[in-house]
């Protein structure tokens, strides 16, 4: 598969993954371009017939985590819009999902990447571990802690609304 074919076919999916891991669309586009440029540099070294997506995804994940560490943005939350004051919403599920995404952005980059890869990309624990360059045990623990934190924060945030 040529580089152009790959980007045309998988560009949207990769951008969505990047957006979920970064939390902001602009950052996601920049990081995706950087990741694709790195992959393009070594595209000729990929084995013919092999799927380049795990390679590109790993570059992407590493870039997101490195960038978060470098910029110390672990506590910095990229918001597409100003945070709004919670109000009682007639639609419980919509409010729940919005809160979920807000809380997902507040997680650490590695934990967020585990959750995105496991529940958005639907990767197995082994594939997630390979993409992150860590052990399956680490993926399990990170996913478990991430979900526990989300659940805890959801309970705290939704309690005042009487949910």
């Amino acid at each position: 598969m040529s580089f152009v074919e790959f980007v045309t076919e998988r560009g949207d999916a990769l951008l969505r993954t990047a957006a979920l891991m970064c939390g902001a669309r602009q950052d996601a586009e920049d990081i995706l371009q950087t990741a694709l440029e790195k992959a393009y540099r070594h595209w000729g070294r990929l084995e013919a017939g092999s799927d380049p997506e795990p390679y590109v995804r790993r570059i992407l994940v590493n870039l997101v985590i490195s960038r978060a560490r470098r910029w110390k943005v672990l506590r910095e939350i990229h918001m597409a819009r100003l945070p709004e004051t919670p109000t009682n919403s007639p639609n419980h599920s919509v409010e729940l999902r919005g809160t979920l995404m807000d809380e997902l952005r507040k997680l650490g980059p590695r934990q967020r990447a585990v959750l995105v890869l496991r529940f958005w990309e639907d990767l197995s624990e082994a594939e997630t571990a390979e993409a992150l360059g860590c052990s399956v045990g680490t993926v399990k623990s990170q996913a478990s802690r991430g979900l526990a934190r989300l659940r805890e924060r959801l309970d705290k945030n939704l309690a005042p609304l009487g949910r």
Binding site: R16, A19, L20, S93, L96, R97, G98, L100, M101, L104, L115, V116, F119, W120, L147, L150
Partner: peptide, 11 residues
């Protein structure tokens, strides 16, 4: 499952 739906809505 809620997380999956939230992510899908988000992107």
């Amino acid at each position: 499952s809620e997380l999956r739906k939230a992510m899908a809505e988000q992107v």
